[in-house]
Nucleic acid binder design. Structure first.
Length: 463
RNA sequence: GGCUGGGUGGCAGAGUGGUCAUGCUGCGGCCUGCAAAGCCGUUUACGUCGGUUCGAUUCCGGCCCUAGCCUCCA
């Protein structure tokens, strides 16, 4: 029984899809004017695991993640770069695809772009005006009239009074209330525009998600997610539009992912304390990054640090080491003990996708496996297969074992040279020339190569 | 100011009304030519002050500290 923490009720709730075993999930994606950073990675990986687990659990998932390819930041950046908007967004969409693929995330089933749905956005704005929920302001822009939607604030748990008291924005004369948000923004000279009943302009940000989710998933749909910073105002504003326009629930389960922090401070573009995914992938292999992200629960804040990455690396090594020397390319073997670990794994993931616990189950399985290896039990293969299989749901332990340890990289000693030294050392050892054997081991260690003897065999790996 | 979250052992990070999280690290042992890996054992916890309880890190209340949102942000 799957339980999900729902932001709107602030409680864990039993998950019941709208249609039997189908899950319809929409996640707010990127605004493509720059490279993706670790914060994006976290949200994307979190929902990737959710997507994978739901499928593993037998649900038929439709996963939609939008691309925002028109907004003020994009326009500004294009001007800054003396580049067309089209070229800017195309470039960063491609970069995003590369980065997310490197992280091993599955592509969403649909990745709608805002600019492909402008006509539909205009239609919903017209409907909102007809419903009395939107108005044309004094400057000609169209605004959502927050006061007219009685449930405004129900997601973020804010009441209008408090919001107004805290409003830091200078009241724009064009709006009735400072909380009203723009649905259609008239274009200035040299800005891109679409024709509309209110003049040439472009849609406000929040509307695209309402339109694209409804088109591809219907309304209501099951899960809507995104980073924690989207809860308010973005998701609140989506909800107001969707429920205001169609008079029915918008979303059943709202999920929000916690922030990546640096020195306990939110990583964000405005604070300029962010690391891009590609920066990090220059130093660390993608799987380490994934492990790091999965080692804490998706709702908690995570502090990004070298120590944490190193910890992830070591933990991952332990998982892979357990698989070493086991031939997995055989028919899947059933084993009662192995099944117990799968049950525990499911239990962990069923509890609001608790990946830290799921990982701890994997480590318990590793101990079981190592023990079985030492004792020469006959369930070694079954345990190893189970480990690989369950880890695969989290999309870790995906590489062939030896490839993981002997992964070539430009700055490392070549495999041939290593094998050569290992052979020399084997000879020295057979002659009980311990001095020479230790010398070679030391030589390799200085190059970051770890030697492991077990009986006659010697294996090596990069540290 | 309002609204959300947090404060756990050397670090990271879960969780629970009364036996173990887990990973890294420390210590002891086994194994090993010595190591590494592995196995076994083991030390150091639950911000603070009260309350409920036979018993609270876990429930309730006050306080302190801290992050986030209230403006674009995953």
């Amino acid at each position: 029984m799957l339980v999900i923490y729902n932001s709107i009720s602030k409680q864990k709730e039993i998950f019941k899809p709208i249609y039997d075993n189908e899950v319809r999930m929409y996640v707010c994606g990127m605004t493509v004017y720059d490279y993706c950073h670790m914060g994006h990675a976290r949200t994307v990986v979190a929902f990737d695991v959710i997507n994978r687990y739901l499928r593993y659990a037998g649900y038929q998932v439709t996963y939609v993640r939008n691309i925002t390819d028109i907004d003020d930041k994009i326009i500004h950046r294009a001007v800054e770069n003396k580049e067309s908007i089209q070229s800017l967004t195309t470039r960063f969409i491609q970069a995003m695809d590369e980065d997310l693929q490197a992280l091993g995330t599955l592509k969403p089933d649909f990745e709608p772009k805002a600019t492909d749905y402008v006509a539909e956005m205009i239609a919903i704005i017209e409907k909102l005006i007809a419903e009395g929920l939107a108005y044309v302001g004094r400057t000609g822009d169209v605004y959502f009239d927050v006061m007219q939607f009685e449930h405004y604030g129900k997601l973020a748990h804010k009441d209008l009074e408090a919001l107004q008291a805290g409003a830091r924005v200078a009241v724009e004369e064009a709006k009735k209330s400072p909380l009203d948000f723009v649905l259609w923004k008239l274009s200035k000279p040299n800005e891109p525009y679409w024709a509309s009943p209110w003049g040439n302009g472009r849609p406000g940000w929040h509307t695209e998600c309402v339109v694209m989710s409804k088109l591809q998933l219907g309304q209501p749909f099951d899960i809507h997610g995104g980073g924690h910073d989207l809860k308010f105002p973005h998701h609140e504003n989506e909800l107001a539009q969707a429920e205001g326009a169609y008079h029915q629930d918008f979303v059943h389960y709202w999920m929000h992912v916690g922030f990546i922090e640096i020195n306990k401070e939110k990583m964000s573009k405005s604070l300029n304390n962010f690391f891009t995914i590609r920066d990090v992938l220059c130093e660390w292999r993608p799987e380490v990054l994934r492990y790091f992200l999965l080692a804490s629960h998706y709702r908690s804040p995570v502090d990004y640090s070298l120590e944490a990455l190193e910890g992830a690396h070591q933990a991952l090594d332990r998982l892979y080491l357990a698989l070493r020397g086991v031939d997995l390319n055989v028919e899947v073997v059933e084993d009662v003990v192995a099944e117990q670990y799968e049950e525990r794994f499911k239990e962990a993931m069923d509890d609001d996708f608790n990946t830290p616990i799921a990982l701890s189950v994997l480590f318990d399985l590793v101990r079981e496996l190592n023990r079985a290896k030492v004792e020469g039990k006959d369930n070694v293969v079954a345990l190893a297969q189970k480990l690989k299989h369950l880890a695969g749901v989290l999309c870790i332990l995906t590489e062939p074992t030896e490839q993981y340890f002997q992964h070539s990289a430009a700055n490392k000693m070549g495999i041939e040279a290593i094998e050569n030294l290992v052979a020399q050392r084997r000879l020295a050892r057979s002659e009980k020339n311990w001095v020479k054997a230790d010398e070679i081991r030391q030589q390799l260690a200085e190059k970051g190569v770890i030697i492991e003897d077990s009986g006659e065999a010697t294996t090596w790996r990069y540290e």
